[in-house]
């Protein structure tokens, strides 16, 4: 019994140590990136390239995600509310949910999958093929060259992608509710406007901004520490997606609690 307890204690201890070690790595990368961003010249050409990759090329994924999430959420809400004769409240529920939770979280998860994986794989491949060592030997800090442009691209692109996802979701939700399920458009829009405010948009954009930073730091950290050739790059890529997604879901809860203080619901 004592041995079992010791085993459990050792397991918990090593897990806690690994977690703190990982958080330390992330914190170190964040501080190094912030320092580079403030003190070193920014490579804007690289940042623009990353904006194209992160922002422009994620459009389809985000639009499809937003559209079908809004559509299905409107339909489900209608089916429940219709029994209570609350059809016209569907617009408000869809809009508030898309703004405050679904838009930012689903965009974050999709971007973590698409962009986080790509970032991790690219940097990881550079690491195992000595391209990172080559950068360092040429007097270039990998954080300056690889992480800062990606961080800038994420900071600018993610809020816009979230806004796009939310907007598309609300529009398709309205289309489904009004044109397919027969909810009155006037009341739908009226309730939607009454129960949403600018602070809902602010909350969505803030979440998008934070999730963007989380994705970029998790993905870059995984890429920068990858080793053992192709297997290592594959592992880093998988972990970038898994950890990035989990971090978004966990942080989202705490972010919701904190942001509700600053942006309370209408």
């Amino acid at each position: 019994m004592v041995a079992l307890f010791m085993l459990l204690l050792r397991f918990l201890g090593s897990t806690a140590l690994s977690l703190f070690g990982y958080l330390g790595e992330l914190l170190f990368l964040m501080l190094e990136t912030a320092r580079s961003f403030v003190t070193m010249p920014v490579r804007w050409r690289l940042a623009l390239g990353q904006i194209l990759e992160v922002g422009y090329r994620s459009q389809l994924v985000v639009i499809v995600t937003g559209a079908f999430t809004g559509a299905v959420f409107a339909a489900q809400t209608y089916f429940q509310f219709h029994r209570l004769s609350m059809d016209t409240a569907v617009g408000a529920v869809v809009a508030v949910s898309m703004f405050r939770e679904l838009g930012p979280v689903l965009t974050g998860l999709m971007v973590a999958g698409r962009v986080g994986a790509a970032m991790s794989a690219e940097i990881g491949t550079m690491k195992v093929t000595e391209q990172l060592d080559a950068l360092r030997s040429l007097g270039v800090h990998p954080v300056d060259y690889l992480v800062v442009p990606r961080m800038i691209a994420m900071m600018l692109s993610m809020p816009m992608l979230v806004a796009e996802c939310v907007g598309i979701g609300i529009l398709t939700g309205m289309f489904v509710a009004v044109h397919l399920l027969g909810v009155s458009q006037v009341w739908y829009v009226n309730y939607m406007l009454r129960f949403t405010a600018l602070r809902d948009l602010e909350m969505a954009l803030t979440k998008g901004f934070v999730f963007g930073l989380l994705i970029v730091f998790v993905a870059c950290n995984e890429g920068l520490k990858s080793k053992e050739g192709a297997v290592g790059v594959g592992r880093a890529t998988t972990e970038a997606v898994v950890i990035g997604s989990l971090v978004i879901l966990v942080i989202n809860f705490f972010l919701t609690m904190v942001l509700n203080v600053f942006f309370p619901t209408t």
């Binding site: 550079m126 093929t129 000595e130 391209q131 060592d133 080559a134 360092r136 030997s137 040429l138 007097g139 270039v140 800090h141």
Partner: peptide
């Protein structure tokens, strides 16, 4: 970083930016 600029290195696998 500035010291490395005075010493160049050619890597075994070339390490060209692909």
């Amino acid at each position: 970083l500035p010291i490395r600029k005075t010493v160049g290195m050619m890597f075994q696998g070339c390490a060209l930016f692909d």
